[in-house]
Design a protein around this nucleic acid. Sequence first.
DNA 1: GTGGGTTACGTCAACGATGACGTCAGGATG
DNA 2: CATCCTGACGTCATCGTTGACGTAACCCAC
Lengths: 333, 333
Amino acid sequence: MPSRSTIYDVAVLAGVSPRTVSRVVNDEPGFGEATRVRVLEAIEKLEYRPNMLARALITRRTGTLGLVVPQMVDPFFAELVDGVQAAAKASGRTTIIAKHDDDLAEFDSIIETLSSFAVDGAIVYSPGGDRAMLFKHAMRGLPTVALGMEISGSNLGSVLWDITRGAELGIEHLVRIGRTKLVMLSRTGARNSLLLPRRETAFRHTLQSAGLQFSEDRVVRMDPTIDGGRAAMVAVLAAGTPVDGVFAYNDAMAIGALQALAVAGLRVPHDIALVGFNDIALCSALVPALTSVRLDRAAIGREAVALLDRMRSAPDHHQPVYVDVELIVRQSA
Amino acid sequence: MPSRSTIYDVAVLAGVSPRTVSRVVNDEPGFGEATRVRVLEAIEKLEYRPNMLARALITRRTGTLGLVVPQMVDPFFAELVDGVQAAAKASGRTTIIAKHDDDLAEFDSIIETLSSFAVDGAIVYSPGGDRAMLFKHAMRGLPTVALGMEISGSNLGSVLWDITRGAELGIEHLVRIGRTKLVMLSRTGARNSLLLPRRETAFRHTLQSAGLQFSEDRVVRMDPTIDGGRAAMVAVLAAGTPVDGVFAYNDAMAIGALQALAVAGLRVPHDIALVGFNDIALCSALVPALTSVRLDRAAIGREAVALLDRMRSAPDHHQPVYVDVELIVRQSA
DNA sequence: GTGGGTTACGTCAACGATGACGTCAGGATG
DNA sequence: CATCCTGACGTCATCGTTGACGTAACCCAC
């Protein structure tokens, strides 16, 4: 079997012009029933499949959208990818996934690649909450939806979740169940100078409005990973900070903390209650099952794809879209 | 900023022909130093980026390879993706990732899409260990490397790990630490009529050569997920099967089992030792840390990309490549 | 039977790049 | 000084498809 057959081969076999084959393939008007049948038979016999490159070259559309995340090893992103992809598929589009490992140069090159492949749009979780790169590419014509970061402009929209509210839900829950000596395991590095402090700000404010005292040593910052969470928890215990409740930046850190607590012989939630963030699927499989703030990944995907659609018809000034957050109470708090 | 500038725009600005711009961009011989500088300046000024579609249409190469896995929520696949992508990047290629959710029709359509985007090759973990689809597309000219499944042919190669050996390592370890009442948590559904039973066969044989008795009720089959593992473990306990050692099909099932055991008040490894398979990163973060059979994901990626390269020069009859397995002993066994 | 509309096609150029090949100036060579 | 070669370009066709437009045949109405 040599190379793929083209619209021209089909045309010859069906005894029509290539243009008519194209019409049949794309179901444009302008051909008769008998012709349609002959063309379809020829297509089947030759196993003809349209060449997307040639088609995209002229139509400037590919029916494909790019999805860019920092990584996929953290199930949060894997699940986010699932959500977006499901929505894209539901609207008949293929998804190209790439990851940037929080490397801005890599991110730039990925977007460049997607753009040169003429994807119809991009849905991105940008590294370090970078905005400049997004503006740059959006301005050059790539419709882009940023996830988890507020931004808007021409060809640029965002889907957000209320991080502050989510953090409040988690922390208020800790207070409600009677915990008074709270600690937050936060992340190092600015994902974004605006966004980073949200959980921390919520932590501070919620403590204050609950009449609890806040001090700087009640926030420990590490990498937002399992290892980081473990290290942060170990540090808290080593410092002798009195603690009966822990709010983690994300579930990965909470899992690390859980391990550190187990190793230290502390019981969760009896000695220390623990709340995570994101509600990855693993939460319910841990022992104890992890209480966490849930983001609806499917909704995020749907909204992102829908927003991209709206931007296609009117590129400008779309309000950020918010997706609900919700506290899922399990055993750990 | 309207649409992207083309090689013509650059040519006009630099005062040369498009062909010369192309030569400079691709660093072909045939232009002088002064011209090179002028062209590069024009490229910079116009922010010219080559249109991959147009280039690929004529060269039939994209510098891109497709990576297809069942899903990414199981960290095993996420880590596999990481390994392949790192290797692809090291050899200067972009990766397009897609998932098929173990749906054969979806898999077909993904390969079709990749193929119509003219990816240079595909690295796939096929659904249900399907072979027919792989042959079909390979025959039509898409160089393909299958992961974890032995297959070879024109444009078709495979990268494998010795599942039997891995299973033996895990099970022998359980025997060595004195466990005699072993149970295996296996998966339902044939990933492949040849491959599926390997772990089970190894289980049976290893028990026999250790002088332990095997009976059918010592293998319980469920979905290869956390939930499946939990259900399988619960079933074993409910059936009253005497057990002091468990070998799980993969880490996800082991995690589920761990949870079921904790809920049942059984201690790991004191009461029941537990061994997983794949050694996902999470293993070392569990309490107790999970003993597991490690596959070197980075090596798998490297070998797959390298094999694809070899297939490009000589499409035929490449031997399957094997990647080592290794038992990582932690706390759970 | 003539004008007007519709249907079912076909023709041609274009998308943005590269492959194959042509040309021309200048230098080396005998 | 004629010849040959080489470097540095340019020209043209082409990849596979679709957009824009042309046109022949047919139908209908007045």
